[in-house]
Nucleic acid binder design. Structure first.
Lengths: 361, 361
DNA sequence: TTTAGCACTCAAAGCTAAAGAGTGCTAAAA
DNA sequence: TTTTAGCACTCTTTAGCTTTGAGTGCTAAA
């Protein structure tokens, strides 16, 4: 993209910011009152015509003002948008909640999702990456009550899962020890699809009179392992879309929601974006058709991977209309995910880089 | 409500069922073709006029067909609706999932909610009642890894909660034993608001060099107890409302969603309904203004309490337009909640009463 | 290079007329 | 006494038409 003259930059920026605020096309007269632009509407019309010729603006129809194109937004995000900063206080306050959830990735992602949605006022999506390999490092158990115990699975990934199991009252603490012994001896290090019939039979034999319980446990363990191994995508706060006139058309809304429910496509879009766009470390901004999903041609997806050490273990992002408050969203996602990165790496305080004057909420 | 003549009953039923299906007002001509009604449209017009005089029907405007009033639906549900029955197979199949979640009330409700929403195609709400008293019966723990352990809280209600705690690597299994000892000695049987400063100080002293950890644990334990003690309302599948033309008006939809997000009002409505309506054991049907929430004047709320033994521990319900497939929804909620009742009481198989010819889906 | 002026375009809003669905009433038929 | 056919009437919906006004592009002068 060629350099623009300073005035063109100013005009483009003003148009985008005005449009982001009220969603209306921006006319030359309105723009001529912008402080910092001391020229007549006619001059601005000329400039706008040129910006349109470059593909940065467009008109919904001849007698309307200008609206940024996808390319316009892209230029804005890449070249015109500096020093975004969020209300650091908000994040800091909420990060306390995050730290409480430490140790459970699911919990962290869920909490972060809620935070991101609340801060940006757009629906938030979280992705949990598929772990390379799922197997249990250790089984443990706690006898709770007559015939009721807690099965604890500690995975090699460090994740911990617990399931409450209810069985017959005759089931004794000693029986639990026996069963845990068997599980630890035969299932450690096995992946879900290595659990085959001979293995199950062997385990049932070890369980003696509680072989029925053992079979039930196998189902539960198998399901839990499957669940651990699945990549997972969640959407939080879909209903926030209702606020934006872009989705007042009920069909647009329905399409979007169908997309959220399908999940596969969204996952693909994110994988896509991560692969193709610049350094896959920073915040990714996919505007309109830049992401491959047709339904999202009028929407923007902004997200950033979450890492533990240097391994990507998920992503957190936000979906909204193309007309989006990019500064705010990018900054929020950036802070939030960086905060999680460092939490996960064990650094204690959530870092709040640089000095912060709050942006508007 | 006075008895209607058989023909009037037939007409009312036909009108409601036709209207439920397509949402359009029903005209006399259309109705005269109904098999079972062998009279002219003029006769039907006379009957309809009388039904309207009784307050069972109304006209959106002079030149439109008739639409059931709230009272009309009420009469239909009370007097005209017999032998509803669901696709039993569907429920049976899904009940397997339910049984897997046994032991965690939250899990059961969540699963049931998903089932109800899927079966009826309306948003489903679940309520967890506020338990009379929350206190921990026993603390337990499992040392997972260097400085990482699982804290297990067994509540007197039988609920079990686990939290993964990450602390300093120096933290040894022996330290865990010490801490559990202290917790069990000082916190058993205490309710959340009995945890005061002297108690905390005592606990921190017991923790020795890990007093910071102990303080962190107190926060977590306190929060968990609070959470256990809260009554809780969740809504699943809000977006299903989009299917129904009643909510095509975006404001109607917004109001509804705001209602779901507020929760207090909905809780009140349910408490209300349980208190005022017939035997509080069966399925409750609150049509339009019968529930006190103004926003729901055009909607219906159908729910039934869930019990363990004879104690109400929650409720599961469905929200949709007044024009609702009452037969199907009532039957689904009834089966589902009865199934859960008996699961919770420890009876093994999910009972599927009576012979079932499937109704349409 | 900038600006004022002016003719032109086109969506949005309002207005009118025609179409159509459904009713209530009356009078005749069963 | 009940049912039915006929008819005038009401009122929404739809389509087409006009008006309004915002915003533009172009031209010519500053």
């Amino acid at each position: 993209m060629v350099e623009l003259t300073p005035r063109k930059k100013l005009i483009l920026k003003a148009i985008i910011e005005s449009h982001v605020q009220d969603g209306e096309p921006v006319g030359s007269k309105h723009l001529s009152q912008h402080p910092g632009l001391s020229c007549s509407s006619a001059t601005i019309r000329n400039e706008m015509a040129e910006l349109e010729a470059m593909g940065l603006l467009e008109q919904p129809h001849t007698s309307a003002g200008r609206v940024p194109t996808e390319l316009g937004y892209r230029y804005y995000v890449d070249s015109l948008l500096e020093n975004y900063s969020t209300a650091a206080a908000e994040i800091q306050q909420m990060s306390a909640n995050l730290r409480l959830k430490l140790g459970e990735l699911d919990g962290i992602l869920a909490e972060a999702s809620r935070m991101a949605a609340a801060l940006t006022n757009y629906p938030c999506i979280t992705v949990k990456a598929k772990p390379a390999l799922v197997s249990v490092a250790k089984f443990d158990g706690i006898y709770v009550d007559e015939g009721k115990f807690l099965l604890i699975m500690i995975f090699v990934s460090g994740a911990v899962c617990t399931k409450t199991i209810e069985t017959v009252p005759e089931f004794s603490p000693q029986d639990l020890v026996t069963i845990l012994h068997a599980l630890n001896e035969l299932l450690i290090g096995k992946s879900a699809n290595e659990i085959n019939l001979p293995l199950i039979v062997k385990l049932e034999n070890r369980a003696g009179k509680h072989s029925a319980l053992m079979r039930q446990l196998m189902t539960i363990i198998y399901d839990t392992m499957q669940e651990q191994g699945r990549s997972d995508l969640r959407v939080e706060g879909v209903t926030r879309l209702l606020q934006y006139p872009e989705y007042e058309d009920i069909d647009e809304l329905r399409n979007m929601i169908a997309l959220f429910e399908d999940k596969q496509e969204l996952l693909a879009a994110i994988a896509d974006g991560t692969a193709t766009h610049d350094e896959s470390d920073g915040v990714q901004v996919l505007i309109g058709s830049e992401n491959s999903v047709k339904v999202m041609n009028n929407s923007t997806l902004i997200y950033r991977p979450v890492k533990r050490g240097d391994k990507v273990i998920g992503a957190i992002g936000v979906v909204g209309p193309r007309r989006m408050d990019y500064a705010k969203v990018i900054s929020t996602i950036d802070r939030l995910t960086r905060g999680i990165d460092s939490l996960l790496s064990g650094e204690q305080p959530l870092p709040l880089p640089s000095s912060d004057e709050d942006s508007d909420t």
